[in-house]
């Protein structure tokens, strides 16, 4: 078994050696340069198996093939141009100045886009409202407009409707900025004898 394997390996190596020889001949017809000498060494066919395999493999392991390497020094000018581009033509990393200040909160935002701060707050309350609305509607057919009632707001309805709109209760307080009138505090409940606080008209 072992002997057959070694024999097989030997024949393979012989083929490889022949191939390398041919390659070297095609590349350098007048004879290979000294660094290729090891690879293109003509292998005598009659050699002992162990000797051939050992020597060839070790040679490859020690020296190997030498691939392409830089032939000349890259000048400083050239190196800097490659790194950073041409002085007059390249795109420099400049601070982004196309920004606007939000009229409501003072954070910066890109023109034509929502303000990240305002939108973040809006998103939070919108998600809470959507969750409440979807829970209220459930799998029943949706037949009426929905109107939010926030925590602390009182609406006296027997059937869960306000002016023909279905009420859904949001577990958070109404944010102060989400109000129709700036002069009225919307998220403050008056004393208990005032039973009805109308939800302000929204959006």
């Amino acid at each position: 078994m072992m002997a057959r394997l070694v024999e097989h390996l030997c024949s393979e190596l012989r083929l490889l050696a022949g191939a390398v020889d041919t390659l070297a001949w095609t590349l350098w017809p007048k004879g290979p340069p000294p660094m290729m000498a090891a690879a293109a060494l003509p292998v005598p066919v009659q050699y002992n198996v162990e000797q051939i395999s050992g020597s060839l493999l070790e040679d490859l392991k020690e020296e190997g093939f030498l691939w392409a390497v830089p032939k000349s020094r890259r000048s400083r000018e050239r190196r800097l141009t490659r790194k950073f581009g041409l002085e007059n033509k390249h795109k420099k990393m400049l601070p982004y100045r196309k920004l606007l200040t939000c009229d409501d909160c003072g954070h910066v935002h890109e023109p034509g886009r929502l303000c990240p701060n305002c939108y973040g707050e809006n998103k939070k309350i919108t998600q809470a409202m959507q969750e409440a609305m979807v829970t209220m509607q459930g799998l029943n057919p949706v037949e009426y407009e929905a109107v939010p009632v926030f925590k602390g707001e009182k609406v006296n309805t027997g059937d869960g409707f306000h002016e023909g709109k279905r009420i859904f209760e949001v577990p958070t307080e109404r944010p102060k900025w989400f109000s129709n009138r700036l002069t009225v505090k919307s998220n403050v409940t008056t004393s208990s004898d005032t039973t009805v606080v109308k939800p302000t008209n929204l959006a």
């Binding site: 935002h109 809006n122 409202m129 929905a146 929204l202």
Partner: peptide, 30 residues
Amino acid sequence: LHKAPNIYPGFYRERVVLELKGNPFPPLEK
């Protein structure tokens, strides 16, 4: 269709907020 803010650093996929008009939520653009 509103353009949502680009969050830095991000994947730079442009995000938008699509909404039906007359919804009960707080307005996005004042």
